[in-house]
Computed example of a mutant assay.
Amino acid sequence: MNAWQVQDAKQRFSEVLREAATDGPQVITRHGEEVAVVLSIDLYHQLASPRLELSDYLLHGPDADDLEITRNQSLVRDVDLDELV
């Protein structure tokens, strides 16, 4: 992620936009402090898209009808509880 001072970002705004589209988010700094980020519209849409709630995912998520789940049918092992004390 590149960092640009405000005055450089203003003078080279087209380059900031181009690098945001190709190289990822570009940080804008003022007096050495990060104050803003320029990012591609695709990344913005990805970050701003609504997140699916877990309950909605479970209700409307992938169909598991063809999922085969089998339980291990082996017997449980004997445990001597006196040894644990």
Rank of each mutant, 00 (worst) to 15 (best):
A9T: 11
A9Q: 03
A9G: 02
A9F: 12
A9V: 07
A9L: 06
K10F: 12
K10L: 15
Q11G: 13
Q11S: 01
Q11W: 04
Q11V: 08
R12S: 10
R12V: 04
F13C: 11
F13N: 12
F13Q: 10
F13Y: 03
F13S: 08
F13E: 09
S14R: 14
S14Y: 08
S14D: 12
S14Q: 07
E15R: 02
V16E: 12
V16W: 02
V16Q: 13
L17F: 05
L17R: 01
R18G: 09
R18W: 02
E19G: 00
E19T: 04
E19I: 02
E19P: 00
E19S: 12
E19W: 07
E19Q: 06
E19K: 06
A20R: 04
A20C: 00
A20T: 00
A20N: 02
A20I: 08
A20Y: 00
A21P: 02
A21C: 11
T22A: 08
T22F: 05
D23I: 07
D23L: 04
D23V: 00
G24H: 00
G24V: 05
G24S: 11
G24Y: 01
P25S: 06
P25G: 03
P25Y: 04
P25E: 13
P25V: 09
P25F: 00
P25N: 06
Q26K: 04
Q26W: 04
Q26H: 00
Q26C: 09
Q26A: 06
V27P: 14
V27E: 06
V27S: 15
V27F: 13
I28G: 05
I28L: 04
T29S: 09
T29E: 07
T29V: 12
T29N: 13
T29D: 00
R30D: 13
R30P: 10
R30N: 12
H31E: 10
H31T: 10
H31R: 09
H31K: 11
G32A: 01
E33R: 07
E34V: 13
E34M: 06
E34L: 13
E34K: 11
E34W: 03
E34N: 07
V35S: 09
A36M: 12
A36G: 05
A36P: 06
V37W: 07
V37L: 12
V37S: 08
V38R: 03
V38N: 00
V38Y: 09
L39F: 11
L39E: 08
L39C: 08
L39I: 13
L39T: 10
S40C: 03
S40D: 01
S40F: 09
S40M: 02
S40Y: 01
S40H: 09
I41E: 13
I41N: 07
I41S: 14
I41T: 03
D42V: 04
D42W: 07
D42T: 14
L43E: 15
L43T: 15
L43V: 13
Y44V: 01
Y44G: 03
Y44N: 05
